[in-house]
Amino acid sequence: MENLIIEETKYTPQIEMNAKEGNIKIVGKSYPENTFEFYEPVMKWLEVYFNGNAKKQTILNLEIIYFNSSSSKLFFDLFDLLEEFNSKNLIMINWTYDEENESALEAGEDFKEDFENLTINLIVK
């Protein structure tokens, strides 16, 4: 399975999805004009990955320093998808936030609260 790499832009994060290592990294800002369009390849990649290509353990490192409201919605959708595959896969999510970034911390807490079955670690930078 191909890796998915999307370079960082002013409005979008750096994305690295490595199928061989089971490593997924999304780091940076997220406020694209069309959020769902931008993340479409990410969601598609995950579907393909979890349908028969997943490693024993998959680690997601998410560090979003700034995001718009549709990105919040997108992350909820993303976690929905992870939850769907959680029972058959070992998934670990590291949500990293800066100490001073209250919005990022609150978002992390919201995800933890909403997705009790997922392993979400809040990591302060």
Partner: peptide, 16 residues
Amino acid sequence: RRQDKIMARSDKRQQL
């Protein structure tokens, strides 16, 4: 509920 939460968070963020 989720949508409401997102909106509330977003409003707060916007204010800040």
